[in-house]
């Protein structure tokens, strides 16, 4: 395969892969209803929980009730995109062996998965609109200034790519283990907790916070969210975004290394 003459790079096939992925995702209507229904349920639950907690206790510094409700709502909306495993088809293809035919095509296989995953995520991103409308019936969401929103958007994009690399690496482990579900669920649950999706990291004991802010999980959820609610102010944007960028570079390099090693030793079970 390595001997084959590489055709010049063209973007069109990857755009097509992306479109195909969107169409595929749109066929599972039930999953769409599940996502939105479960989103509404969770936001309703979180509102009741935070209201009950703030009613009986002193509000922590910097995060009054309206800010924490905004935080939770935005975290759940981000989850619609960030909780999607956009590389799961890699696992499926490694598991049933169909990855072999992808290697024979005149395309870059990792880019194919990237295009496919991006399409899948774009579809899920479109669910943000109905979910947001629904959320506004349940809670009030603060809208920060334009500058803050811009920083949030940039941070969110960085967080998204960090998440992509983590998913890519996890799915790549199937090159060796063929079975990844348990590991994947473990990582998902750890991300929920340590990334600040459920509870802001600033509520953790101070000693733990420093460690947590340095982990890639925080780069996915916590950093964009704390920028959104103003807990990370403009003076700290550079360092916060910088840590995200460092994680992105590290994980992207790790992805490349693991992919190279993995694709050299494909094992296909049976026929």
């Amino acid at each position: 395969m390595a001997l084959a003459v590489r055709p010049p790079f063209r973007l069109e096939p990857y755009l097509e892969f992306g479109k195909k992925a969107i169409a595929r995702e749109a066929t599972y209507r039930f999953d769409v209803f599940t996502s939105i229904g479960s989103f509404a349920l969770r936001i309703y639950l979180l509102r009741m929980v935070w209201v009950a907690l703030y009613a009986r206790n002193a509000a922590p510094h910097g995060l009054p009730l309206h800010a924490i409700l905004t935080y939770s709502a935005v975290a759940l909306l981000m989850g619609l995109v960030l909780d999607v495993d956009q590389v799961s088809s890699l696992y499926t293809k490694l598991h049933d062996g169909s990855i072999v035919s992808d290697f024979m095509r005149p395309i870059s296989v990792p880019l194919y998965f990237f295009a496919d995953g991006t399409g899948e995520v774009l579809f899920h991103a479109s669910l943000i609109v109905p979910s947001l409308v629904l959320a506004l019936f349940i809670v009030h969401i603060d809208v920060p200034s334009g500058g803050t929103l811009a920083a949030f958007a940039l941070s969110f994009v960085l967080g998204y790519f960090v998440g992509f690399c983590i998913n890519f690496i996890l799915n790549c482990t199937a090159f060796w283990t063929l079975e990844i579900h348990a590991v994947q669920l473990i990582v998902t649950w750890l991300t929920d907790l340590l990334g600040g999706e459920l509870v802001p990291l600033v509520f953790f004991p101070v000693a733990l916070q420093h460690a947590l802010f340095a982990l890639p999980f925080a780069a996915m959820f916590s950093t964009p969210l704390l920028i959104y609610v103003g807990e990370i102010g403009p003076d700290r944007y550079a360092s916060a975004l910088g840590i995200q960028a460092i994680w992105l570079v590290v994980l992207a390099l790790a992805s490349v290394v693991i992919w190279r090693a993995g694709s050299r030793r494909i094992v296909v079970q049976g026929g």
Partner: peptide, 10 residues
């Protein structure tokens, strides 16, 4: 973590 910040829930 939640009850570390907020000692009482109802």
């Amino acid at each position: 973590v939640v009850l570390h910040t907020f000692p009482s829930m109802n």
